[in-house]
Amino acid sequence: MARTTSSDTHAAHPPREGDTAPELSLPTLDDERFALADREGRAVVVSFLRHAG
């Protein structure tokens, strides 16, 4: 990967079916925090978008 990041959390590959989900904790567009870990007991569809447009 050419791009370097401040953290070393870059996974070598996306999670496969059966894997434990990687962490997902980010602010929403409305500036609230969403954390996957808080959603235990519910299925969540996680959809990463490409650039807007």
């Binding site: 996306p14 999670p15 496969r16 059966g18 894997d19 989900a21 996957l36 519910r42 969540v44 490409r50």
Partner: peptide
Amino acid sequence: PRAAGADPYQMGGDFIVNGEGRVVYSRPQ
């Protein structure tokens, strides 16, 4: 064409995580 700063090379993907925090569907783009 897209505004400068957009990154057309970054891929997305769709996943489903079940109630136990396990990935049950994985479709990286």
